[in-house]
Simulated scan of single mutants.
Amino acid sequence: MKENHSSKTAEDVARLRAAHQLMDHPRVFDDPVALRIAGAEAFAATVADRQQGRGRTAIRALRAAVVARSRYAEEQLARAVETGVRQYVILGAGLDTFAYRCEYAGLHVFEVDYPATQVWKRKRLAEAGIEPPPCLHFVPIDFETQSLSGALQDAGLDANQPAFFSWLGVTPYLSRGAIMATLGFIAASMQQGSAVIFDYMVAPHLLDPVRRTAFEAMASRVAELGEPWRASFEPAALASELKEIGFPAIRDMGPEELNALYFRDRTDGLRVSGMSRIMLAMV
């Protein structure tokens, strides 16, 4: 992340979510706010890509990964709300739209993000005529240098009550130390019934040649944008480490499970390719 600049990859993710609303039927993830917050430029670029077929296979796989992780996270949030959780923390929120679609009475939403990205998002919201709801708390933070616990406490998070955390599309860009510090904070500080869901890149030496080539191409692209990937994990080692720091129950979802859940019997080729996985860790 370039200092004092908003995230370019966050804008890419918003475009993919918006494109899904236009291009894929049936939709895996319904997000009626996505096109509004992505902006007119993103809408025009999405249509142009569709008409010209630019990088169709790679873009389609990225789009599948984005919408699958979003749906899975919000399904797990729904289960948490059913058990009484009333705090939802979105780490690295980018242009996430949940707070502007939320239908859960009494749920407090905390959007945590790099300060410049959050300023950019609030500008986008104003331009789209989207009013932040009363349940929403903005929490500006740099994960590498600032305390998450202090920032959340200042924003009103009650550490004596359980919370559900989502952390999507962020861990590849952070140092391993920053990632484990954040996960350690959740495990050590949050009440039983809390959970965190995050996606992570699989260590490239574990990928087959096709997926490794795709990994290297994407890593090169985000590095050119000034947001290089810094962390990847071996799934078995990560699972063991999570249990050691205080998560007694985990669920690790790979491409096979996600495709079976959300992309079965599709004829349009929309499928998760497999460079990343989704981890649900419960306190």
Rank of each mutant, 00 (worst) to 15 (best):
K2N: 04
E3R: 01
K8C: 08
A14E: 01
L16D: 06
L16Y: 15
R17H: 12
Q21L: 09
M23C: 08
M23W: 13
P26R: 03
L35E: 13
A40W: 10
A42V: 08
F43V: 05
A45E: 14
T46E: 02
D49N: 10
G55Y: 10
T57A: 15
A65G: 09
V66T: 15
R69G: 09
R71F: 04
R79Y: 02
A80D: 13
G84Q: 02
V85M: 02
Y88R: 12
L91T: 13
G92V: 08
G94D: 12
Y104A: 06
V109M: 05
V112Y: 04
Y114F: 11
P115M: 07
Q118A: 06
K123G: 05
R124H: 07
E127Y: 02
I130L: 08
E131A: 07
H137A: 12
H137V: 00
V139L: 04
D142W: 00
S149D: 08
A151R: 15
L152P: 01
L152Y: 00
D154Q: 15
D154M: 08
D158I: 10
N160M: 12
Q161S: 15
P162G: 13
A163G: 00
W167M: 15
W167Q: 08
L168K: 05
Y173E: 06
R176G: 13
I179E: 07
M180S: 02
M180E: 10
T182E: 04
S189Y: 09
Q191L: 13
Q192D: 12
A195C: 06
D199W: 12
D199H: 11
H205M: 07
D208I: 07
P209Y: 08
V210L: 09
R221W: 11
V222I: 10
A231W: 07
E234I: 07
P235W: 12
A237C: 09
L238G: 05
L238M: 15
L238Y: 05
G246A: 05
F247M: 07
F247N: 02
I250R: 10
P255Q: 14
A260N: 13
L261A: 15
F263N: 09
R266E: 02
G269Q: 06
G269R: 01
L270C: 04
I278Y: 08
M279Y: 03
V283T: 11
V283N: 06
